[in-house]
Simulated assay, not measured.
Amino acid sequence: MEDARRHYLDQIRYDGVPLSPALARAFAAVPREVFVPDGFHRRDGRRVLPADPDYLPTVYSNDVLVTKMSGDLPVSSSSQPSLMAVMIEALEVRPGHRVLEIGAGTGYNAALMATLGAEVTTVDVQEDVADRARSALARAGINGVRVENADGYTGGSQGRYDRIVVTVGVAGLSPHWLDRLEPGGFVVAPVEHAGTHPVLAVRGSVPGPVTASVVCPAGFMTAAGPLSARHDGSHPPPAAALGELTEAAAARWAPALEALAYRDLWYAAGAWHNRATHASVPGREQSYLALLDDSGTAGAVILPDGAVLASGASAERYTAVATALMDRWWALGRPPMRAWRVGLARAGDPGAPIWVPRNWELTRRP
């Protein structure tokens, strides 16, 4: 087990995540297997049970563990540890901090923050998920965590918090969260942008202004209810596939952009164009940055090497837009997503509003 956990920390660091000594000790001390006692699904959908030989090696890998499915749709999980680490480091958790977590999941993330000395309240709208998290925390002997079965939009029972962390993809932030922050407090949340959920560090108050900086790229399960409301600035939903794609522009980069740089381009495209999202490409495993026409079934796809695939009646126009976006990003020195400052505005259902990204400004260049 000691070897497994030591290898676990190495895997998290291998993804470029700098672990503070305190957080490294927390990852080493909290037994992740206690939080998935009934097994889990891997990314490929295969079920892994505690009796399987790859159970512990997978538990102590840098991978997401899906713990609840609704049909073919994952609805609860233990997030990828390196992403947990980035978000916890971004929270700047200190001993004695009161932290509200929206989305209890397995309880593992709350356990890590409690091990850092925080007083954590974690809420989940799914009663069975909250019950399992509560049981797992008790089995692990973790103190300092209160689990509530409550609506994430309201944030559960009343209280004031130094930090709020959201572990489910949202279209925007609930004003209830901002209203419950202590002075100097902030929210770390994955907020929808061009079909993904980049993590933002958000500061502000209910009257406004509300601003954010970008922490890292991410993809999360999407929340239900007002937290996922569509609004005027929403990007189109991801497309399962775009048919009849043909190469409309040749590759421009050799070697192709690395994964993080491609995400930087993706973020910029979403800031500059409201039809940016992602789409599957026949014959390829992953999804790619796409610009969809109004039908949502055609448009242009930008590949990591800069090649553009296009389809539909407006293929030529969307190819030109894709090329212009790449030219602009390159001319600005390939700005990383962390160089963006985001302004948020109230939108969504007037009876249950949310603060959503509305404008973007580059604050620095490489």
Rank of each mutant, 00 (worst) to 15 (best):
A261P: 01
A347S: 12
L289E: 05
A85C: 14
L245H: 09
A248Y: 02
A24W: 11
R5E: 00
G243W: 01
A138N: 00
M221L: 13
G299Y: 10
T319Q: 12
L227C: 13
G283I: 06
A150S: 08
H97V: 03
L291A: 02
Q286I: 10
V301H: 09
E148M: 15
P95T: 03
T211Q: 06
S280R: 14
A256Q: 09
E92H: 11
E361Q: 14
P226Q: 13
D72L: 06
P226W: 08
G351F: 05
T115C: 12
M221A: 03
V202D: 01
V93I: 15
V129G: 07
N109R: 12
R43Q: 13
P350E: 06
S228E: 03
D232A: 15
G172S: 01
P236Y: 09
M113K: 13
H197I: 03
G233W: 11
L56W: 02
V214M: 14
P236M: 12
G156W: 08
R42Q: 08
R230L: 09
D293C: 09
L332T: 04
W272C: 10
S311T: 11
Y55E: 06
M87W: 06
E33C: 05
H235C: 08
R98M: 10
P304S: 11
D232C: 08
L291N: 03
A4V: 03
P217G: 06
A150G: 08
G39V: 07
P18C: 04
D54N: 04
W340I: 02
D15A: 02
A268R: 07
R6K: 14
R47H: 04
V59N: 13
A224T: 09
A111I: 11
A347M: 10
D179S: 15
R365I: 11
A331N: 12
G169V: 05
G195S: 12
P57K: 04
A26N: 06
S61A: 15
S70H: 07
R365W: 12
A339V: 00
D232Q: 10
V214H: 06
D179Y: 01
I102Y: 14
G208N: 02
A345G: 04
R317C: 02
Y60P: 01
R32D: 04
S314M: 02
V321L: 10
D264I: 04
A347N: 11
D151P: 03
K68C: 07
P236I: 05
R94M: 12
Q126R: 12
E244W: 02
G156D: 01
A352F: 05
L292S: 14
P198E: 01
L332V: 06
G283C: 04
V281E: 11
F40Y: 00
G225N: 07
S314P: 00
W177T: 03
V199N: 09
E127Y: 00
V64N: 10
L181N: 13
N62C: 03
A130G: 02
W330V: 13
D162N: 14
E89W: 09
A118V: 09
S78R: 07
N143K: 15
